[in-house]
Amino acid sequence: MTDLLEVAGLHKSFGANHVLRGIDLTVPAGSVTVLVGPSGSGKTTVLRSLNALEIADQGTVRIGDVSVDFGTKPDRRALRTLRAQSGMVFQSHNLFPHLSVLRNVMEGPLVVQKRPAAEVRAEALTLLERVGLADKAEQYPYQLSGGQQQRVGIARALAIKPRLMLFDEPTSALDPELVGEVLAVMKDLAAEGWTMVVVTHEMRFARRVADQVLFMDGGVVVEHGTPAQVLDQPEQERTQRFLHRLNDPI
């Protein structure tokens, strides 16, 4: 399998805080990679660097045939091209509150990609059906539950036809009973062959769906491998400690 995503030597500082200290990462096409680690480990920053929401100081990100070298101060157009390769689902959905659910999903293809409205609308409705929300098309985001909002977020991200789907703690802001419906949609996407990079604390999702798990701490990838390797037989002491805290928090 060819690698769809390739990250090499990613560095990022926020002021004096060196949050990414050389991240290397490859994601084969059609596979699911889960990033885990304590808060402040840099996992969200890695994810946000993949679509240039954070501009890394150094390193390269390649998605398919689009490659950006952050060391050379890429221009806005290069960053936009990189962004177009991936769809992003946020922790706090970030749906557009002034637009209906359907318009939220249509906005990218219609306004940015300037595709015909009828076609975009039909596709958006199909996407909403896929995340189980066809009947909510005309509602506004505030009228939905957290889980439904997050599923609309997934549909909106899919609508731009990305090659890669990024999930930034998609269930962390949800009530526990709503987590399942979002993870179920993500599991379906994985089964359909979507390439996904997911930052999450849902270890059961990682075990069942991930092809690869990366454990990050202190701005580096401490350990990576299959879920069984990293989550069940971690070699590194830092990984063991983190998983122990996660499994037995009290």
């Binding site: 936009r80 177009a84 909106r156």
Partner: peptide
Amino acid sequence: GQWEAASTVGMDYPTTMRRIVLPQ
């Protein structure tokens, strides 16, 4: 987050301003 969401669906600054930020 609204700016970020707009940029992930591909919008540039003027489009984000016009379609997402100014209406809100």
